[in-house]
Design a protein around this nucleic acid. Sequence first.
DNA 1: GCTATAACTGACCGTCCGGTCGGTCAGTTA
DNA 2: TAACTGACCGACCGGACGGTCAGTTATAGC
Lengths: 211, 211
Amino acid sequence: MKSAFQRQSPGEAAILDAAVQLFSTNGYDAVSMREVASAAGVSKANIYHHFASKETLYRAILDQSAADLSGLVETLAASTGSFESRLAEFAAGHLQHLDRNPLASRLIIREAFSGDNQRSRILVDQVFGDIFERIVAIFRAGQQAGSLRADLDPALCATLLMGADVFFFQARDVLAQFPDVEFACHSPRFSREMVEVLLRGMMNSPMEVRA
Amino acid sequence: MKSAFQRQSPGEAAILDAAVQLFSTNGYDAVSMREVASAAGVSKANIYHHFASKETLYRAILDQSAADLSGLVETLAASTGSFESRLAEFAAGHLQHLDRNPLASRLIIREAFSGDNQRSRILVDQVFGDIFERIVAIFRAGQQAGSLRADLDPALCATLLMGADVFFFQARDVLAQFPDVEFACHSPRFSREMVEVLLRGMMNSPMEVRA
DNA sequence: GCTATAACTGACCGTCCGGTCGGTCAGTTA
DNA sequence: TAACTGACCGACCGGACGGTCAGTTATAGC
């Protein structure tokens, strides 16, 4: 793919746009290069002019998706404030980030959770790992400050928080079909109540801090 | 497929065994009928003797997987006891059930969360929905008994609980690679701490009940 | 043993797969 | 103006896809 200093041709851009749509929706194996070409409005041979193989094209899409999602890590790094506010900020920001990058999110999540047949194990683990470590760091800081209960594993707490967002992102369409599940269409409400429950379950109560 | 009163031929059984392995690991699109035949030790044509098409074979696998997972619903229906004990029982039982049926679990979860290209929307939604409704019912009962906070949405609580287990099941292999994540190899520990945090965050405190 | 049927198979089919080849075209540069 | 280059394409390639067919073998029932 072109470096940052070279402008993409219209064809290349169209190919990438079409590919991210198709791969994100249907997965790697169900998408043919003819399909990508047709959706992009170019010939299949033109894809091979820009990308050495189907695998290379997919890898380019994954790289871009990873870059899209890594914006969240920067946000986390810049975050300051009390333990509670940082957590609330993360939970809302994380889910919002997933929602704003649905294609990238779905791609990375699918790769992360797929079985043995994986194309970019290292990249995906890194994306997940970076985000995960940042969350764990917040929990550790909270524990050292006496806000988070000392008997809880910060990594387990991070798993609960991250898992809630990722599951919601994945399951939202299914949940929306069940009766009385209004929050399925309202991410901020889910985030708010989820964080409230988790914080209440994880925090040292004021009495305990004073004692 | 044969009815319950007819015995499967060795070939048919081998085909189903091979197919569930391959489809569960690699997904529908990445698995060819030649691959299934080879893994089953039969000819490809023999698959078509027993199953009208690839789709029919896959549907048979899904039906079986749904039946495997529905055992959990029966367990939930039979459960009695206090709100807390029912929740703890569910959380541990749910994850244990996923662990004991990894192939079926992975298949159903993948179908539930895949994009527009779905083969058994109704079946999968039903499996998920049945389990979900049972959990919501437990939360509702707890709320009516005054154990669960009145300001919480039972469906949202059910989402948090179910989501924690499903995410853990999906992400465990990824998590295991991160530093200091020992619980990734220890489902019971995850279940215990997860329920403890959620319950603490969701329960009416004894003081509030008395007031 | 005979018959009917289920189970099974190698060869085949049309179509589609990822990828290649030889070319054209428009723009840029020397 | 000739040479070069990146973008692009129709036609083609060998192989693989899901599925079919006629024949063979195994099994069950009489």
